[in-house]
Design a protein around this nucleic acid. Structure first.
Lengths: 346, 346
DNA sequence: TTGAAAGCGCTAACAC
DNA sequence: GTGTTAGCGCTTTCAA
């Protein structure tokens, strides 16, 4: 029969025989402390240790269907924005004694779908970091397994997101205070929920603050994408730029530099996320720091609560505050723009 | 009994009943095309689709013990050096129709051990990217499951590594050609195999080229670590620095900058790995580019070959060539050093 | 407290 | 070709 390919490993039956007890007793001794006499239990543990017995997780999980594993699906692992999210998720999972595995889908909705399909029966729950799937596809999986989304809101699926609205308002106010009036938003992927939300929030803030907000794009949310955007940025050159994310902003700064445009002298640049590296580019990037680690911890905590039976149809997205980190890429616009610095709110 | 927590999903028995055939026939129809009459097969597929049947992977894998999943364990996912490794591993896994999951152990040997222990029976094989475990611990797991290590050599375990020796020689020659004579190596983690190998190779190259090579450290292989190293670097300040990795090099450049030391005017800096971001720091970093993507692909290819029965006690490490990428952080030393530029080999 | 036995869902030997 | 049946290793009633 289907013997294991190598030499086969000890099972509870081996332990049971060796101890002269029933397999079920071994099972109990090993997983339900107290339901077996101290004596037998001790002997069983002893023999199990001697034989090097270890439960076969596949067999263990078959009857219950629970594996103690959750997966964090990340839309693109090469984006440093996920580092803190991952770390947060890991710590929450570890605290609850769950194993967290990661899956990278490289910005591909197809791969994302495949991975979910493959894993849907072998993990206890899904955490989606910035899914690129349609709402319908997300909901379909969410019906089969506990799921939480991060940085993305889908009706009927619990989610945790940064406060993009508030954040974009901060960014707008910062620019207004410096005296900027003409701002361009550099779009990320059209399938990105955050992109849409950020653009809308910025437009709204701009209106309130009396600024003219243009939009260009979409561009790939990468350094290369930002570099490409730079070319589109110069005609006409605004006094300030806000990019969908830091990678895009850094790429744009590089492209601008190559075109002879100086940041922040000729144009100010703001990114989003405060990724690793946003402080070591030149000039250091002013950016809207999302509460990334908290996204990970809170998301996974909620997921695990759902797995443990919390009601799955929760109220509304958990919104976490963002923070503007002012570094060197923003400054007052050139005089020709005619605004006195600090006119925004002071 | 152990019913699934939600409503229970359709099984082959449901499909079989609906079709009026035996469960085994359903199994065959679904997994061994051709061993069932076209007619029945078609009907079975039809019903299966209608019922939304999907095999329970846990049950499927129990008899064979094979899950079609491999895990890539990464010592620290927040180090961009792994991006290409991961991508390479993913593509190789996908090509062989294996599911690749990632596991980050955050530089913790304990976590690494736990993860392996937890997954050893549920994955078909392990790929270790820069393990921080002892050789003995690695071998112990390698005896239980197919395994390959990347960027690390352990006796009896197949591995794929960059050619650190050749690479360090390139780096040394580059500095020699520029006229450098006093070089300091900034060490990474003492448990890192690559750190040891790089240091030895550099020392050997330095001897051949008539350079004085010092070593400081160890430091954490992070930007913060490099920043700390800068303070130790200035007394006495060498004319050139080679760091264990790019993160350290970038941190050192920042620290040096804060101390008023100019790169490359006062001191040249070389990193290792060519990570994302090494070209957007200031000055852009000269670095030894490891064949990272290939590390991932070749490693996983080999792993899968082992899973499929290739002999597990392979000859020697697969060594892949490195490449020196010269950017802006290296230049001839100040005149006081008294060497004519280009004296190295021309 | 412990044992016997059924069952989780699927695969594969062995008949027919 | 297709059905019967015996496991894979563990958990969990149900009795004793």
């Amino acid at each position: 029969m289907g013997k294991r390919n190598g030499e086969s490993l000890p099972t509870i039956y081996d332990v049971a025989r060796e101890c002269g007890v029933a397999p079920s007793t071994v099972s109990r001794a090993l997983s339900q402390p107290g339901r077996v006499s101290a004596k037998t239990s001790e002997r069983i543990h002893e023999v199990a240790a001697r034989l090097g017995y270890q439960a076969n997780p596949l067999a263990k999980y078959l009857p219950t269907g629970r594996t103690g594993t959750i997966v964090l699906i990340v839309s693109d692992i090469t984006n440093p924005v996920y580092f803190p999210v991952i770390r947060g998720a890991e710590s929450a999972a570890a605290a609850a004694e769950y194993t967290l595995v990661l899956s990278d889908v490289g910005e591909s909705p197809e791969r994302e779908r495949e991975v979910m399909e493959k894993l849907v029966r072998t993990v206890d729950g899904f955490a989606l970091a910035t899914s690129r799937l349609t709402d319908a596809a997300i909901r379909a999986v969410a019906r089969r397994r506990p799921m939480v989304t991060m940085n993305r809101v889908t009706q009927q699926v619990p989610s945790v997101v940064p406060d993009n609205g508030q954040g974009m308002r901060y960014a707008g106010e910062h620019l207004a205070e410096l005296g900027h009036r003409r701002v361009t938003y550099v779009s990320g992927p059209p399938t990105s929920w955050a992109n849409t939300v950020r653009w809308r929030a910025l437009r709204a803030a701009g209106e309130q603050l009396g600024m003219t907000i243009r939009r260009i794009g979409p561009y790939a949310p990468t350094v290369a994408g930002g570099w490409a955007a730079a070319a589109d940025l110069v005609s006409p050159l605004p006094t300030a730029v806000i990019a969908y994310n830091d990678l895009l902003a850094i790429g744009a700064m590089q492209g601008l530099h190559d075109l002879g445009v100086k940041v922040p002298d000729d144009v100010s640049v703001i990114g989003c996320d405060n990724i690793l590296g946003s402080d070591w580019c030149t000039p250091a990037l002013t950016t809207l720091a999302a509460p990334l680690r908290e996204l990970g911890t809170r998301g996974v905590q909620h997921l695990i609560a759902m797995i443990n039976g919390a009601d799955a149809r929760p109220r509304r997205p958990l919104v976490l505050p963002s923070q503007l980190i002012v570094r060197e890429s923003t400054a007052p616009p050139r005089d020709e723009d005619g605004d006195r610095p600090g006119s925004g709110r002071e």
